[in-house]
Design a protein around this nucleic acid. Structure first.
Length: 107
DNA sequence: ATCCTGACCCAAG
DNA sequence: GCTTGGGCCAGGA
């Protein structure tokens, strides 16, 4: 995988995100890796921005289970997650037990 | 082509 | 715990 057509990898990323079940979360890096592009965490952001409400964006967090949003959106995300049963410890998500484990990503 | 931006990541100090 | 600097990638001006 060298120069993946952006549409192609974007599709892979969307697919991965849709697999995250309610009550679980994943980091940008994990999503990118699970999609087959370990270094595309920044593209995950692009995809989520464009996808908007058509994807469970609240389940994607920064490294360490931290919300990378600012101000109101950060609150929105936290509320949504707590509503799904995700527990917070301090300013970050308690990853222990909430981190989604992707099954052997497609070969 | 260059410069800047974005919900980033991580090793160092 | 914090900040800094370097590395990553695509898209838009």
């Amino acid at each position: 995988m060298k120069k993946p057509a952006s549409e192609f990898c974007a599709a892979a990323i969307r697919k991965v995100i849709r697999q995250i079940p309610r009550g679980k979360v994943a980091t940008y890096g994990q999503v990118a890796a699970a999609a087959g592009y370990p270094l595309y965490h920044r593209q995950v952001v692009q995809v989520l921005r464009k996808a908007g409400e058509s994807l469970p964006w609240q389940r994607v967090l920064g490294a360490g289970g931290e919300i990378r949003f600012k101000h109101e959106m950060a609150q929105e995300q936290r509320v949504r997650l707590e509503m799904e049963g995700v527990r917070f410890r301090g300013g970050r998500v308690d990853m222990t037990g909430h981190q989604h484990v992707f099954r052997t990503w497609e070969l």
